[in-house]
Structures are given as C-alpha cells and as structure tokens.
Simulated scan of single mutants.
Amino acid sequence: MAKVSIGLRGWRFDEEEVFTDDGEFRALDSVPDDTRKRLIRLTYLQEKPCDACYLVHGESEKRRANGAEIVYGEPMEEVLLCSEHEADFLYWFREEGGKEAAGTETFRDEFHEWFLAGNRAPEGYGGLEHVDTDPDKLPTPPDPAELNRRLNENYEGERKRIDLKTGEITTVEEGEDAPSLGDVDLGRDYPTK
C-alpha cells in the first residue's frame, strides 16, 4: 500500500484509505476516523502561512510570510512550515529536544518558543529530501464547501456539519438554527492566534 502526501508534505496517507480505484477521494464516511480528521484539517491548513515566517513578520506583515508547504505534528498541534524553515524545525526536533514534545499539547508552542528565542539550524544543516512522484496526478483536497456538500449528499432529513479546525463532524437536526454569532461584528478585524 503506497503512502502519499496530499496538499502539504508531511502527513502521509494510505492511498487505498483515501482514494477510490478511479483516483477520486472516497466519501468521508468511508474513510477511517483519524484519516478523515487529518483530511478535513488539511482543507483548513492549506492556505495558512508558515509558522516560522509568521513569527518573523507578525500579524501586521503576515502577507510577507511564505505559504505553508509542510505539516508536522498532530492535528490541532501541528507546525506549518515553508521549505526555507523546514531545516530549523528538523534541527529543533532532532537536536534540541523537540522529539520529546511530539504528540503533546505543547508541541507547536515549544517549537514557537525555541524559534522566537532566536534559535535556528546551523548553516548547511540537512533537511529531508522529499520525493515528489507525479504530484500533479494527485487530486487536491476538496475545498470546505465541497467537503460539506459531499458529506451531506446521502443524508435526507438531517445535515452534517464539519468543524474545519478540529475535524469533528456533528449532526444538525432539521429546522435547527445555525449557531448564534451573538455580538460578533463581522466587519471588525479580530486578533488571530
């Protein structure tokens, strides 16, 4: 069974769990839970900036940050990186104790703290050599609207809702109102994490 990266390098998926024989994405309800959560999370992460670039430039200049190309860690505690900063992450992980934080709720925060303290990989530190075998042949993950449409196409009388941040799928009863936004001002810029 071949392993493939989808959308971002790093997380690897068993092809047979994710794709049909025709090379299309399987229906979400036929994909194992952990794989489904990662796929849903990928749709949220794909347009995000590299964490290290973001830390360098800050919120006010985040447009200067490179887009994420690589994801390491577990969903909700992942680190997003561009190829320029991958060596910094790998150095932290291999040589500076990052491996001990793997799988913990502080994984991302510990890398961020290390990076913000001015730590970097030494000049010439080797990263990983990624092998891209026909990356153009793999379909890109569906966008959130398409994911939602696919999830609900076979359910009459009930709808399912996907939380793109957590990957959780919940059922919405017919006639149930959308969650209230309370006093949220949709025109205002709110701080982001």
Results as ranks from 00 to 15, higher is better:
Cys82Lys: 03
Ser83Thr: 04
Asp163Gly: 09
Glu113Val: 13
Glu16Ile: 02
Glu17Gly: 01
Ala117Ser: 10
Lys165Ile: 14
Val131Asp: 06
Val4Trp: 07
Asp29Trp: 11
Glu174Asp: 10
Pro139Val: 15
Gly157Ser: 14
Arg108Ser: 13
Lys160Phe: 09
Glu69Cys: 11
Thr106Arg: 10
Leu138Glu: 04
Asp22Asn: 06
Asp143Tyr: 02
Glu95Arg: 12
Pro122Trp: 12
Ser5Gly: 15
Gln46Gly: 15
Glu86Val: 02
Gly182Phe: 01
Lys37Cys: 09
Ser5Leu: 06
Gly124Glu: 10
Leu116Gln: 12
Pro179Trp: 00
Asp14Ser: 01
Gly73Gln: 12
Leu28His: 10
Ala65Leu: 13
Pro179Lys: 03
Phe111His: 03
Cys50Gln: 14
Asn154Lys: 14
Tyr54Arg: 14
Glu123Met: 01
Ile70Gln: 04
Lys62Cys: 13
Asp33Asn: 12
Val71Glu: 13
Trp114Ala: 03
Pro142Ile: 08
Gly124Asn: 06
Asp189Pro: 11
Arg26Ile: 10
Thr20His: 03
Glu173Cys: 08
Asp29Glu: 15
Gly98Ala: 05
Leu42Asn: 05
Ile6Arg: 07
Gly127Val: 01
Tyr190Thr: 07
Glu78Tyr: 03
Asp183Ala: 09
Pro75Gln: 05
Leu8Met: 07
Pro179His: 01
Lys3Thr: 15
Glu174Pro: 01
Gly187Val: 02
Pro122Thr: 11
Leu39Tyr: 08
Asn152Trp: 12
Tyr125Thr: 13
Asp143Thr: 00
Asp51Ser: 09
Asp51His: 11
